[in-house]
Nucleic acid binder design. Structure first.
Length: 748
DNA sequence: CGTTCGACTTAGCAGGCCGTGT
DNA sequence: ACACGGCCTGCTAAGTCGAACG
C-alpha cells in the first residue's frame, strides 16, 4: 500500500472532510483481515524497537538530527494559534497555585433528620467536591444554610407534583424573558451535593415496561420455503418477522448479516423446522413484509380518536413508569421501556450484524432502589433476577444484553439532578483545564524531544487530542465490533505524511473510521518536530501496526491525571469545543445585526465546533428538495419586494403632488411594508445559508454534550435573544441550571 | 501489570409529531 | 382544514474511563 492511497477522489471534493463514511467501508474492509491480531502486533512492535538500548540509540540519533532542524520551529505555528486563540494567553506564571489547592471546607452538611436519611459514613471527598470548591464561579456555599432549610422542607411536604403544567407562559411571552421562574421548579443546583460517594438516599420506582408480547401473524399471512407455504412455530415465526421487517434495508443483503441471522434463527426453530429450513435464500418473507407495511399504513390512517387513545395510553404509562422518586423529588426517567427483541444492527461494518437480540424477561432484570421504598413488582407469575439497594450508582434497572454481553441500564433523564450535576461538573473540569492548558501544552512540546519513546508518543498523541479534538481511542476486542479507532489506537495505515503539500510543510493526512464508523478525514500541517516523530513512530512498521505502540488510553490518562486533577483525554474535547464556541461567538456576533442574523452567527459558531469534533450526519434525504422550496420562496419574496418598492415609489410621487396628510400616511405605510418584506427576505436568505452550510454537519451532539450551556445563555442575555431560539424545550430542561445561573458576563 | 467489568457519556438515525403555509 | 416538511424525541449502539480482577 503506501504509495497510492486510494483517496485521491476524496480529496478532490472541495477539501471537504465530509464523505459518506459508509461508502468507504469497502476500502476498510480489505484492511480488516490484515490487522487481525493486535495484541501480537503490539508485542512485536515492542520487541522490534527493543527496550532500552535499541530505543535509546535510535531516539538519540533522531534527537540530534532534529535538534538542528528544530531551530526556527517550536514557536507554535500560527496555524496552531489560530485554532486555539485564547484571549488570556499571557499568564506567565502558568504554574500557579491552582488545581489542587482546594480549600474545600467540608462543611457539615446538615442531614435532615428523618427516616431514610442516615449520615454518610465514609467521608472521603469526591473529585466533584474539589472541583466545586475550587471554582470561584461556583458557589453553592452561601446558599447553604438556606438550603438546609429547604432540604428539610422538601422532605416533608415534598413536591412530588405531577408534571410541569406551567411553562406555557414562558414560551408565549418569550421575549420578556420569563420573569418569574415557576417556583415549583426545583433548583437542585442551589443545594449541596453528596460528599460521601452516594448518589442518592432514597429511590423508589415502578420498574421497567417490558416489550409487548409477540402476536402471531394472522393465518392468511404466509411464509414460504422453497416456494411452498409453511407454518412456523411461534418462536421461529417471531424471529422471521424481524427479518421481514427489515427486508428493504440494504443490510439484509449482506453476507454477514444473513449468516448471523440465519444461525440465530435456527436456534429458535423446532427440530422439524431446523431440518427443513436449511437455506435462507429459499425463504420468502415477502407476504410478511407486505403485511407489516400495510399495518403501518393503517396506523397512519387511523382516526383522530384512535390516535388520541394511543396517546392517552402512552401518557398514562409515562406517568406511571416514567418517573421515579429520588430524594424527595419526582424525576423523569430517560428510558423506562425495555428494548424490544429484534435483529442487531451495529454501525458500520459490524461483525455481529444480524444476530438475534433476545427478548428481555423479568428474570433478566436487576432492580435497584432503596430498601425502604416500595419495591417494584415483577409482572404476575415472574420474578426479578435480583433486587439490590446500591446507592453508589445511579441506575434503577439493569440487564445484560446478549450480543456483546454488556450491561444496559435504565437511568434518569438529563433534566434530573443526578445527570445535571454531573454535566455541570464536567464543564467545571474543562474550565480548570483552561487555567492550566498553556502549561500542559508547553510540556508536551517539550516531551516531543524526550529520549524516551513512550513519552514522545504520549506527547504527540496528546497534541492530536488537543489540536484535533480526537477521542482517546481505547483498544477494542477484535471481531467483536466494527474496526474503528481513536487517537491511541491509530494505526500506521491511518495517516500519511507529506513533507510538503499544497505549499504547506509537514502535512499529516488522517483518514480513519472513528466512533460509529464515521469517517475522519483531515489534512493538517503540524510542527516539524511532530512530523519527525511520526516518521520515527512509523519506521519499520506494517500498515496495520499501531502508530503509538507504547501508548494506550490508560497510560495517557494516568499521565493526564498527574497534570491536573480530574483531567482525562475527553476533557480536551469539552474544553476545546467550549472555548471555540466562546471565541467564535465573540468574533462572529455583530451588535448591529438583527436577531435572525445573530442566530445565524450562533449557528456558525456551533458549526465550527461540530466540525472540530467531526460531528457528521447523512445529508437529509429531502435536502435538495427542501433547498429548492426555500429558493422558490425567496424568489417569491423578491418579487414581492420589488412590487412593494414600486408601490412605495408611486405613493411618494403621489404624495409630492397632493401634499395632503392622507397620502403622506400612505407613504409611511408603504415604507413599513417594504421594510417588513426586506426583513422577511433577509430571514429567508439567512435560513438558506444556514441550511446549506449545515448540510452534512450535525449541531445537536456538540450542543448537547460539549458546549458549556452557560456560554450560550450568557450570549443570549447579552444580545437579548430569547433562549428559546437556541434551545428547544428538552434542551432548556436539561440546561435549566445554566439558564438559571449564568448571567451575561459569564466567561467559560 | 494487563485484562475485564461496570457505569456512565456521547452518538447518529428513524419515524412521527406538530407547526406552517396554503 | 389539510398537506407538507422540519425538527424533536426516542432509541440504542458505541464510546470513555476507573475499578476490580487474576
Amino acid at each position: 500500500m503506501s504509495g497510492d492511497h486510494s483517496h485521491s477522489e476524496d480529496q478532490i471534493d472541495g477539501g471537504s472532510r465530509f464523505n459518506d463514511s459508509h461508502k468507504h467501508k469497502d476500502k476498510y474492509k480489505e484492511k480488516e483481515h490484515k490487522h487481525k491480531d493486535h495484541k501480537k502486533d503490539k508485542e512485536r512492535e515492542k520487541s522490534k524497537h527493543g527496550n532500552s538500548n535499541h530505543k535509546d540509540s535510535s531516539d538519540k540519533k533522531h534527537r540530534d538530527k532534529e535538534k538542528e532542524k528544530m531551530k526556527h520551529k517550536d514557536g507554535s505555528t500560527d496555524k496552531y494559534k489560530d485554532k486555539h486563540k485564547e484571549k488570556k494567553m499571557k499568564s506567565i506564571d502558568v504554574k500557579v497555585k491552582k488545581e489542587n489547592g482546594f480549600a474545600s471546607p467540608p462543611q457539615v452538611k446538615s442531614e435532615p433528620e428523618d427516616g431514610f436519611y442516615h449520615s454518610p459514613k465514609n467521608e472521603k471527598s469526591l473529585k466533584r467536591e474539589r472541583d466545586d470548591d475550587n471554582d470561584s464561579e461556583f458557589k453553592p456555599k452561601k446558599i447553604k444554610t438556606e438550603n438546609d432549610k429547604k432540604a428539610k422542607k422538601r422532605k416533608q411536604d415534598e413536591d412530588i407534583k405531577p408534571k410541569k403544567t406551567k411553562n406555557k407562559r414562558e414560551v408565549t411571552d418569550g421575549k420578556k424573558k420569563a420573569k418569574k421562574e415557576p417556583e415549583e421548579k426545583w433548583k437542585w443546583w442551589e443545594e449541596e451535593r453528596y460528599t460521601d460517594g452516594s448518589k442518592w438516599k432514597f429511590l423508589e420506582h415502578k420498574g421497567p415496561v417490558f416489550a409487548p408480547p409477540y402476536e402471531p401473524l394472522p393465518s392468511h399471512v404466509k411464509f414460504y420455503y422453497d416456494g411452498k407455504p409453511m407454518k412456523l412455530s411461534p418462536e421461529a415465526e417471531e424471529v422471521a418477522t424481524f427479518f421481514a421487517k427489515m427486508l428493504d434495508h440494504e443490510y439484509t443483503t449482506k453476507d454477514i448479516f444473513r449468516k448471523n441471522f440465519f444461525k440465530d434463527w435456527r436456534k429458535e426453530m423446532t427440530a422439524e423446522e431446523k431440518a427443513k429450513l436449511t437455506d435462507l435464500k429459499k425463504c420468502n418473507f415477502t407476504e410478511m413484509s407486505e403485511y407489516f407495511k400495510a399495518q403501518s399504513e393503517a396506523r397512519k390512517a387511523m382516526t383522530k380518536d384512535e390516535k388520541l387513545k394511543i396517546k392517552t395510553e402512552n401518557e398514562r404509562l409515562l406517568q406511571e413508569y416514567g418517573f421515579c422518586i429520588m430524594d424527595n423529588h419526582r424525576e423523569r426517567i430517560a428510558n423506562f421501556r425495555i428494548e424490544p427483541p429484534g435483529l442487531f444492527r451495529g454501525r458500520g461494518d459490524h461483525p455481529k450484524m444480524g444476530m438475534l437480540k433476545r427478548r428481555i424477561r423479568p428474570k433478566d432484570i436487576i432492580i435497584n432502589c432503596s430498601k425502604d421504598s416500595k419495591h417494584p413488582e415483577p409482572p404476575p407469575g415472574t420474578k426479578w433476577k435480583e433486587v439490590r439497594h446500591d446507592n453508589k450508582v445511579t441506575w434503577l434497572v439493569s440487564w445484560t444484553e446478549n450480543i456483546q454481553g454488556s450491561i444496559k441500564y435504565i437511568m434518569l433523564n438529563p433534566s434530573s439532578r443526578i445527570k445535571g450535576e454531573k454535566d455541570w461538573q464536567k464543564y467545571e473540569t474543562a474550565r480548570r483545564l483552561k487555567k492550566c492548558v498553556d502549561r500542559i501544552r508547553n510540556q508536551y512540546h517539550e516531551d516531543w524531544k524526550s529520549k524516551e519513546m513512550r513519552i514522545r508518543q504520549r506527547a504527540v498523541a496528546l497534541y492530536f487530542i488537543d489540536k484535533l479534538a480526537l477521542r482517546a481511542g481505547n483498544e477494542k476486542e477484535e471481531g467483536e465490533t466494527a474496526d474503528t479507532v481513536g487517537c491511541c489506537s491509530l494505526r500506521v495505515e491511518h495517516i500519511k505524511l507529506y513533507p510538503e503539500n499544497d505549499g504547506q510543510e509537514y502535512v499529516v493526512e488522517f483518514d480513519f473510521l472513528g466512533k460509529d464508523s464515521i469517517r475522519y478525514y483531515n489534512k493538517v500541517p503540524v510542527e516539524k518536530r511532530v512530523f519527525k516523530n511520526l516518521q520515527l513512530f512509523m519506521e519499520n512498521k506494517e500498515p496495520d501496526d499501531d502508530l503509538f505502540d507504547r501508548l494506550n488510553t490508560s497510560v495517557l490518562n494516568k499521565h493526564l491525571q498527574e497534570l491536573m486533577d480530574g483531567l482525562t483525554a475527553k476533557v480536551f474535547r469539552t474544553y476545546n469545543a467550549s472555548i471555540t464556541l466562546q471565541q467564535q461567538l465573540k468574533q462572529l456576533t455583530s451588535a448591529d445585526e438583527n436577531i435572525p442574523a445573530k442566530i445565524l452567527s450562533y449557528n456558525r459558531a456551533n458549526r465550527a465546533v461540530a466540525i472540530l469534533c467531526n460531528h457528521q450526519r447523512a445529508p437529509p434525504k429531502t435536502f435538495e428538495k427542501s433547498m429548492q422550496n426555500l429558493q422558490t420562496k425567496i424568489d417569491a419574496k423578491r418579487d414581492q419586494l420589488s412590487d412593494a418598492k414600486r408601490e412605495l415609489k408611486s405613493a411618494k410621487a403621489d404624495a409630492k403632488v397632493r401634499r395632503d396628510e392622507k397620502s403622506k400616511k400612505a407613504v409611511e405605510t408603504k415604507k413599513k411594508a417594504v421594510q417588513r418584506i426586506e426583513e422577511q427576505l433577509m430571514k429567508l436568505e439567512v435560513q438558506a445559508t444556514d441550511r446549506e452550510e449545515n448540510k452534512q454537519i450535525a449541531l445537536g451532539t456538540s450542543k448537547l454534550n460539549y458546549l458549556d450551556p452557560r456560554i450560550s445563555v450568557a450570549w443570549c442575555k447579552k444580545w437579548d435573544i430569547p433562549v428559546e431560539k437556541i434551545y428547544n424545550k428538552t434542551q432548556r430542561e436539561k440546561f435549566a441550571w445554566a439558564i438559571d445561573m449564568a448571567d451575561e458576563d459569564f466567561e467559560f
